[in-house]
């Protein structure tokens, strides 16, 4: 579904990613782990169209999306939920969902919001509430619901556990699996909570100093503390 080929990019003149290649098949949940500043979020930004690609290519459903705008990527079925469950904190829950479907027609948007309310019933109750006043868990649900509104085939999630209370983490990761199974949405998740992400992923990539340091099945990491330590140092 998504093929990243020899990707190189960065910010300004500073190169962050070096020859990064990845593969995500349809229906898979793929986790990206690695130390801070390794370039994990940069991969998601490049795939979503926020960052321009210096070298390499990104294929989505067989087509190059290297030069696509963010809007074109959303229309082709690729959405991005940025770091820390960001929501429009001054706007209502309903406005947030409306803006998630900014590129949809009025009727499509109505249907998608109805579906979002079925998936996240708490958001229906809070629809008129200002998003900034929701709890951390509710904001996380809203960020996820907002990203799901355009009916994506691939969802890019950047550190969805950031800022969440530890007791909510299991629920959140279970929700990802539920959405993956129910709607068949593939997911590429950047995450620092390694023990959580390897439990739900079909495949894991580890990034270190802008390069792929590990690629494999989660079972290759479970129980191997030294190996994990090596990937994070």
């Amino acid at each position: 579904m998504l093929e990243i080929k020899n990707l190189e990019t960065g910010y300004g003149k500073k190169q962050v990613l070096f020859d990064v290649s990845m593969n995500i098949s349809e229906g898979e949940i793929v986790g990206i782990i690695g130390p801070n500043g390794a370039g994990k979020s940069t991969i998601l930004k490049a795939v979503s169209g926020i960052l321009t690609i210096w070298n390499g290519d990104i294929l989505f459903k067989g087509n190059s999306i290297k030069k696509n705008s963010i809007a074109e990527n959303i229309k082709s079925g690729l959405t991005f939920a940025p770091q820390g469950n960001r929501v429009f904190d001054e706007l209502t829950v309903k406005d947030n969902l409306d803006l998630g479907g900014y590129l949809l027609s009025k009727n499509e948007l109505k249907d998608r919001i109805e579906q979002a309310f079925e998936t996240f019933p708490i958001l229906k109750k809070r629809s008129k509430q200002i998003a900034g006043k929701l709890s951390g868990g509710e904001q996380q649900m809203l960020a996820l619901a907002r990203a799901l509104i355009p009916n994506p085939k691939l969802l890019l999630l950047d550190e969805p556990s950031l800022g969440l209370a530890p007791n909510l983490l299991n629920d959140v990761f279970e929700k990802f699996v539920d959405i993956n199974k129910t709607f068949g949405v593939s997911m590429l998740i950047v995450e620092q909570k390694v023990n959580k992400i390897i439990k739900i992923s079909d495949k894991i990539y580890s990034i270190k100093l802008g390069k792929v340091a590990f690629e494999g099945k989660p079972k290759e990491l479970i129980g191997y503390k030294e190996k994990l330590k090596d990937l994070f140092l």
Partner: peptide
């Protein structure tokens, strides 16, 4: 209102 609130998130939502 979205751009006023969070310009980066607005762009990510497909708003120019």
């Amino acid at each position: 209102k979205a751009v006023a609130n969070d310009v980066e998130l607005a762009n990510i939502s497909g708003i120019s």
